[in-house]
Amino acid sequence: MRTIAAILTVFTLTLLIGCGSNNKAANTNTPAAGSGNTAATQAPDAVTSASVVDNGEAFKKAISKDGTWIAATLKDLSFSEDLVVDGQFINKEKPARKIALYTQDADHNITNSFKLTAPKLTIRSENTRIQGGTFIGDVYVEADGFAVVNATIEGNVYFSDAKYQATYSAADQGKVTGVTEVKQ
């Protein structure tokens, strides 16, 4: 049964990404790297599809600057080291990153939710969302547009600047059990 759910998840994610993205490059008016602007305003590193993972090494690669716009887990993952979501990726012509802690059926109903555990998760990619499961640990946000969607963070969310906190959202039962504040 779990294998069928995994296959359906991969198929659904592939279908969604293939239909929802036209894979155009980033806006050519975006400043180039090294121009003194932050990573959030630089041209995206890549336009990619999803990475469905079931182990720690694959997950770390998926959230790295060499990864994919979405990292979808197929089971609970636990790390003793800190994790970093880095790099800029495009989905539907906008910067986006997603940590999908769930599987879903063909009608987009969540079939399983998973836990991701790490002491610290640093968000450096614009418009990163944690969706559909539980992250256990503290989140440090260094980019615009962080969101918790239909997910729980069992820990704190710290923003390195008030401008990042101003773009934060929690939607569709997204919640944080600890504090949500600026901490430099």
Rank of each mutant, 00 (worst) to 15 (best):
V176M: 10
G67R: 03
A166V: 13
C19M: 13
D82F: 02
R129N: 14
L83T: 04
F79E: 03
T14Q: 10
E154L: 15
V149Q: 09
R129T: 06
G67K: 00
N150S: 10
T12A: 14
T30H: 04
G132Y: 03
A62C: 11
A171E: 10
E126Q: 09
S35Y: 12
K94R: 02
S64D: 05
N112L: 01
G20L: 06
S113A: 11
S80V: 06
A170D: 01
L77A: 09
A39F: 15
L77W: 09
A33E: 13
A118L: 08
G178M: 04
N22E: 13
D144M: 05
H108P: 00
T103H: 00
A26G: 13
I99A: 00
E154I: 14
G133R: 09
I63P: 07
D86I: 01
S49H: 02
S21F: 02
A39Y: 14
G67T: 01
R2Q: 15
A40R: 12
F59V: 03
N109P: 05
S21P: 06
K98H: 03
D138T: 12
R124W: 12
P44Q: 11
A96F: 08
L16S: 09
D161Q: 11
D105M: 10
A32W: 14
G145R: 04
Y102E: 05
L15P: 01
A96R: 08
E154V: 15
T180Q: 13
K115A: 07
G18A: 09
N27D: 15
Y164T: 05
D161N: 13
D66K: 08
Q131H: 02
R124A: 12
I130P: 09
F114K: 06
Q42V: 15
I99T: 00
G87V: 01
G137Q: 07
Y158F: 15
G133H: 08
N150E: 06
K94L: 03
D144C: 06
T152A: 05
S21H: 11
G36Y: 14
V47L: 08
V141K: 05
F114I: 06
K60Q: 13
L101C: 02
N112D: 09
D172A: 05
T28Q: 14
A43M: 13
D45F: 07
P44R: 10
T111E: 10
A100F: 13
Y102R: 10
V85M: 00
Q165K: 15
S78N: 08
L74G: 02
T38N: 15
N109T: 13
V53Y: 04
T167E: 04
T12E: 12
G34N: 11
L116Y: 05
I153K: 04
P119S: 09
N29I: 14
M1W: 14
A170L: 06
V149S: 06
V141E: 04
K183V: 01
D138E: 08
G145S: 08
Q42N: 15
F59T: 00
D82E: 04
A162I: 14
D144L: 07
L121E: 02
S125V: 06
E93S: 10
L121W: 02
A71S: 04
A46M: 08
T28F: 12
T111H: 11
P44S: 12
A171V: 03
R97W: 04
Y102D: 07
T9P: 08
N27K: 15
A46E: 03
A170Y: 05
G36L: 15
A143M: 07
T177L: 12
V10R: 14
T177A: 07
C19V: 14
E93K: 06
T152Q: 12
I4C: 14
E154W: 09
F135D: 01
K94C: 03
